[in-house]
């Protein structure tokens, strides 16, 4: 099974090397958990490696996603859109489910073997296009099975109800059918937010079975910690990160290094509170390490 980098800093190691190529991954999380950010990082990593990116948005429109991506440090996103290496598709859940039922097989037969990265954000409206559970399962099963043939798929799912409860029908069906399931647990606290990432399953991989803290950093996106709970370092986080990355500049492609340096230059120590700086540096380097 070939692994491809996820683009989410620190996640590859937890997935036994990355996402399985031509597989389907479902990311479940409540509002604010970082699902769209994760999907954006995933697509972006593919584009940086020369793959084609398709972002099917069933919720927000293209401009809104681009705006958020730019805020997350993806300043050259419009260049990818302009030369059609990245294509945004905004469709309603009903349109998309009609497309799956009527046209997906012939579309896939035309484009079989393409190696695109496909993000579907969120998949939930497709499920809601039909109230019949059996039909929902058929539809999602068919979508995931077919789209694997044209690329590696990552779909997000809205988590409703009690935080951490994955037994609702909107989550159970895709979870069962996907190759890999990642749960972003998010809990808003009075003094910030508690974010944990757990890999529920990842076929053919020895993945982590623990919950890992993660943070969303402006300019970088999601950074996952490998250790379960790391006590906050008192300060100097951003400065330390700049120093470590500077010392390892030769290990990463120049454009990536330039982008990361610019993003980190904007950070303050507070942005990296509660994380182990060495872990972040290691994740950033290993995501892009040359050779």
């Amino acid at each position: 099974m070939k692994k491809i980098p996820s683009g989410v800093y620190g996640l590859n190691a937890l997935l036994d090397g990355g996402v399985n190529e031509n597989s389907t991954t479902v990311v479940i999380g409540s509002s604010g958990a970082g699902k769209t950010t994760l999907a954006t990082q995933y697509v972006r990593r593919g584009l940086e490696g020369g793959q084609e990116g398709i972002f099917v948005s069933l919720d927000e429109n293209k401009e809104q996603i681009i705006k958020e991506a730019i805020e997350m440090g993806w300043t050259d996103i419009r260049d990818y859109v302009e030369n059609e290496q990245l294509v945004f598709i905004d469709a309603s859940g009903r349109d998309f489910s009609d497309f799956i039922k009527k046209e997906l097989p012939s579309f896939v037969s035309e484009w079989k073997g393409a190696k695109a990265r496909i993000a579907i954000d969120p998949l939930t409206p497709v499920l809601w296009a039909t109230p019949d559970r059996y039909e929902q399962r058929e539809l999602i099963g068919f979508l995931l099975k077919e789209t694997r043939n044209v690329g590696t798929v990552l779909a997000t799912l809205e988590e409703h109800g009690t935080a951490g409860d994955l037994s609702g029908p909107e989550t159970v069906i895709p979870m069962y059918l996907a190759d890999c399931v990642i749960h972003l647990k998010y809990r808003a606290l009075d003094d910030g937010a508690d974010r944990r990432l757990k890999i529920v399953k990842c076929r053919n991989s020895q993945h982590s079975e623990r919950a890992h803290s993660y943070i969303i950093v402006k300019g970088l996106g999601i950074i996952v910690q490998h250790a379960h709970a790391i006590p906050p370092k008192e300060s100097k986080g951003a400065e330390e990160l700049r120093r470590i990355l500077g010392a390892n500049a030769s290990r990463m492609p120049k454009p990536v290094m330039g982008r990361l340096t610019a993003a980190i230059a904007e950070l303050e120590d507070d942005d990296l509170r509660g994380v182990k700086i060495e872990d972040i540096a290691k994740s950033l380097i290993s995501e892009y390490e040359v050779g």
């Binding site: 084609e52 398709i54 059609e84 294509v87 945004f88 309603s92 349109d95 484009w111």
Partner: peptide, 15 residues
């Protein structure tokens, strides 16, 4: 021509 543009075309007709 790429797969993404083709998919967008296919869906834009439906929309």
């Amino acid at each position: 021509r790429r797969v993404g543009a083709a998919l967008r075309d296919a869906l834009s007709g439906k929309r």
